[in-house]
Amino acid sequence: MRTLEVLAPETLEEALALKAHHGTALLPLAGGTDVIPGIRRGAYGAVALLDLSRIPDLNRIVDDGTEIRIGALATHADVVESAIVGAHIPVLSEACGTVGSVQIRSRGTIGGNLCHASPASDSVPALRVLGSVCEIRSSKGTREIPVGDFCISPGVTRVLPADLLVGIRVPKMRPGSRWFYLKLGQRRAMAIAKVSVAFLAAEDGGVLSDVRISLGAVAPTVCGAPRTAACLEGKKLGETVISEAVEMIQTEAKPIADIRSTEEYRREMVGVLLGRGLRGFLE
């Protein structure tokens, strides 16, 4: 039996004060789907937990006009079920719907998913193509970091010892945007991605612009494919353009090999998923 110290502040200010005082010795606990197994594994050393669940409104999803603000403690299920998310940033609903299982989606949070900084995260590729910004608070004030710069390496983010990630601001997608999130896993539930691709672009008369692509599970962090995105910029979608993009992304991606898959397979699949998503727009 293991005993753990758990601090459960009731206000954000209190939580920030505790974090300012204890720093890394205090590990924020949101849904616990990564933190609890990590503690059992001994991955965090001697830490106390900062339970964020009693802080009001930290899980709210709000329409701010041009943006959707998602509280860090919103669960994947909250995101999937949110009408606001569904209407304005559906690529995020799609991605969050592929996380784990009903149980995991009901516990795991969007903020926790970001802070875990897994390259195989499902929410991060979607947040990244959406141009989302992380809201980080400390007792000294608020900072903002784009999702694309938030993760440094697996498990390591730009959150400092006195910081808490409190929310994510997500610009609304323009009407008529083209998007997809495609993921490959070894089984149909409880599957961590072997490869995933998130895509978002504006489209006018079949011509793509502002193309954004994020790749999950191919590098130490979720990454982009800027050359491929640029190659699609201003193009009218057709079989030739798609084939070129597929070929390009297979050269551009520098997949890693790990327990979940191989470099060769991932390289191939990045192209397959991109091609599949793009061809879907033609149907």
Partner: peptide
Amino acid sequence: ANLERVLLGKKLVRT
């Protein structure tokens, strides 16, 4: 017969 094997017909070497 996992995804890699079904697709590529062999077990790929992991490095």
